[in-house]
């Protein structure tokens, strides 16, 4: 029972922290896209785009994708819980969600891996 509470609490904070990180990324995303608003316009934007396609940024993208996936899949679980689904099987639901996240992150890593080697 205690373990279940700890698991639930961790996922609760995980959802909040990933949400705040994604909100922070939204503003970073807008700042980078704002290169198009500079006097050099498209030239400046293309330069920024070529920098963020380098391997360290692709690796960071993978982490970002994992964060978004965690928030999204856990969000689906929360909405199901709002409709009264999977509440008794809460522990099972959380582990299922985490497994789905892990599998999807693994698949995404395989898809994104060639970009890391460019």
């Amino acid at each position: 029972m205690n373990h279940e509470k700890t698991l639930g609490r961790n996922v609760f904070w995980g959802h909040r922290i990933t949400g705040l990180l994604i909100l922070g990324y939204l503003y970073l995303h807008l700042v980078l896209l704002s290169a198009i608003l500079s006097p050099l316009g498209s030239q400046h934007f293309n330069a920024v785009a070529s920098v963020v396609e380098r391997p360290p940024f692709i690796a960071a993208d993978m982490v970002l994708f994992a964060i978004i996936l965690f928030h999204a899949v856990n969000g689906i679980r929360l909405i199901l819980a709002d409709f009264g689904l999977m509440i008794r099987e809460n522990r099972f639901a959380i582990w299922t969600a985490m497994t789905i996240v892990a599998v999807m992150v693994f698949i995404a890593s395989l898809v994104m891996f060639p970009d890391l080697l460019r």
Binding site: S34, I36, L37, S38, P39, G41, S42
Partner: peptide, 12 residues
């Protein structure tokens, strides 16, 4: 808007 027409309303 800047992407549509290559020029923005406000320049940063």
């Amino acid at each position: 808007w800047a992407f549509w027409y290559h020029h923005p309303f406000f320049v940063v």
